[in-house]
Deep mutational scan, measured.
Amino acid sequence: MQRVNMIMAESPGLITICLLGYLLSAECTVFLDHENANKILNRPKRYNSGKLEEFVQGNLERECMEEKCSFEEAREVFENTERTTEFWKQYVDGDQCESNPCLNGGSCKDDINSYECWCPFGFEGKNCELDVTCNIKNGRCEQFCKNSADNKVVCSCTEGYRLAENQKSCEPAVPFPCGRVSVSQTSKLTRAETVFPDVDYVNSTEAETILDNITQSTQSFNDFTRVVGGEDAKPGQFPWQVVLNGKVDAFCGGSIVNEKWIVTAAHCVETGVKITVVAGEHNIEETEHTEQKRNVIRIIPHHNYNAAINKYNHDIALLELDEPLVLNSYVTPICIADKEYTNIFLKFGSGYVSGWGRVFHKGRSALVLQYLRVPLVDRATCLRSTKFTIYNNMFCAGFHEGGRDSCQGDSGGPHVTEVEGTSFLTGIISWGEECAMKGKYGIYTKVSRYVNWIKEKTKLT
């Protein structure tokens, strides 16, 4: 034993070699072989497995989906700052455009905790909710729209109204504003409101030439003092309507412009014939205590009207009353817009006519005020429907199939267009061939041609 100890002390290297040989010859039971080890760690190889990531292109799944990435790591994937920024906006807080917040056709661009709407022409605001041009839906104005110097929408209202708090709607500024039905039992019968379409306001006024200088022999019209197929109006439903009495009662109609003036057809009036105007009328054979009678003290036909040349060209006249009318729910003026808007309103496509005229061709006159909704007829169809001249200051309205029309005794009465609950004068009943005849239409004086003249002559002093 002493000898062994001496050998170990003198030859430590020998001992180490012996131990190493023993270990190498022993069977290893701690580690699995290569094949079995792979069965336990069965993990798919990654895209760049075996390579240094710093030297390969980034992978979106590896960089940002398996674990949260930084902007720089995302930049490695896209290799483009702009594309990385677009991805980053949604990656950080989701897609803010998912709810489609942009209105009126706006395009949404996502941002971090926010979004941006790219608005089409005519709109602005956070969600493109603000109209900035009158060309689109009248700028959301209830009545009139004008573009300011910086191309912003400025709404306005006709006389007797003021802008509401929203700067879009119009509200009454006087007790009985024009064009409004205020009798409670008839307010439910107000005709369907007309909503502004998209309009090209630059070209809204037709490029028409008034044929002022045409000389033409007097034409022989049949029954051209021209509501057939209409309905009984309720008291106060058309408070701007008046009836004219002269040699015979209810020979023509008219509309209240203001307390002192009536507008009617020029062919209705004769110099030297006494005319009485009755406002607030409903049943011409009954006294309903809503009527107001006034005498006409002055007749002003349009300066281009000449019955000797043509009885229905420039067929418009103004009547001055001896005493002002007292405005109330049964006696209310009709609204008159400017030339541009009167023309736009007419193009809405349908209007209402009213009167006490004959209820059928050569038949009896109506006792109760009649009204009828009539569609506008395109000019080409209008011209083809008659052998008589249709001037540019006239328009056609009615039904091709016949059966409904204005008729004798309705002449001078109103053709009105309702705009968001307020009625505007767009025409004056003038003439036609018979009444409600198939293929024939009622012919009306186009008020847009005469609004400046009306307003100039009827100013209240």
Results as ranks from 00 to 15, higher is better:
Q2W: 15
V4Q: 10
N5M: 13
M8H: 13
M8V: 08
A9T: 13
G13R: 07
L14C: 12
Y22D: 02
V30A: 09
H34P: 11
N48R: 00
S49I: 05
K51W: 04
E53H: 00
Q57H: 02
G58Y: 02
E67H: 01
E72W: 04
E73G: 01
E76S: 03
V77F: 06
E79L: 04
E79G: 15
E82Y: 05
R83M: 08
T84G: 05
T85G: 09
F87P: 02
K89P: 05
V92E: 13
E98F: 11
P101W: 04
P101C: 02
C102N: 02
C102R: 02
G106C: 03
I112V: 15
N113M: 10
N113F: 04
Y115V: 04
F121D: 08
C128N: 03
D131L: 13
C141K: 00
E142V: 08
E142D: 12
C145E: 03
K146P: 02
K146G: 07
N147L: 13
G160H: 05
S182Q: 07
T186E: 14
S187A: 14
D198T: 14
T209H: 13
I210Q: 13
L211A: 15
N213P: 10
F224T: 15
R226Y: 12
R226S: 07
V228P: 07
G229A: 13
E231L: 08
K234V: 15
P239V: 02
W240M: 01
L244I: 08
G246L: 05
G246M: 06
K247I: 10
D249N: 06
F251I: 12
E259M: 05
V263I: 12
V269C: 09
G272T: 10
V273W: 13
K274W: 04
V277K: 00
V277D: 00
A279M: 02
T290L: 06
I297N: 06
H302G: 02
H302S: 03
K311N: 05
I316L: 07
L319T: 02
L321T: 03
P324A: 10
N328S: 10
I334D: 00
A337M: 02
A337G: 06
K339R: 15
I344L: 15
K347T: 09
G355Q: 12
A366C: 06
V368Y: 06
R373K: 15
A380F: 10
R384Y: 06
T386V: 08
N393F: 04
F395V: 02
D405P: 13
D405A: 08
G409P: 09
V416R: 02
E418F: 08
S423F: 15
F424Q: 00
L425T: 01
G427W: 00
A436K: 12
M437A: 13
K440T: 15
Y441S: 03
G442W: 05
I443L: 14
V447C: 03
S448P: 02
T458Y: 01
